[in-house]
Amino acid sequence: MKEFIWIGRGGQGAFTAARLLGAAFASKPGMYSLAFPTFGPERRGAPVNAYTKVDKKKIGNRAPSQKADILIVLDQSLLEHRLLDSLKPGGRLLLNSCDYLSDERILCLDAKELSLEVLGRNIPNTVFLGAIAALDNELELSDIELVIKDLMPKKLQAKNIELIKKVYGEVRGGR
């Protein structure tokens, strides 16, 4: 089972991204997924964890993942050293940051700049969907495109697809 943990603040789209990722995997024949948020005070600014679980058989374990294949941190202020302990062996931490960090498990993407450039707004979540498609050996860019077309409002689709393609290219290009 592959597990993705999303960490952000309410309003940054952590759960939306977790859900889109879940839907993208689930759209592939023979694949099952679960996507859910942690359930705390629902308001902008509150830390939100969200989870995407993916497997080739139906997933029975609905508890929040304790370890992740990929951990995505959408808000730098939520980054803590102990998060690296939540990675499975070989796992990666994707961080929304313009900085560079030497730990090879961490991949930094300036989602603020990328989303401002393409979407015109600072919305960091879809950036990381593109990154995951680039890093994951089963998920394809077309799977993400499919769910963007299926689940996002029409006027947001084209720009988001452009964004994920751009990020996919950058991450594939050797980060």
Partner: peptide, 11 residues
């Protein structure tokens, strides 16, 4: 902003 500076002490 809460995250107004990158907290290098955390990594």
């Amino acid at each position: 902003e809460e995250a107004c500076e990158f907290r290098e002490d955390l990594i």
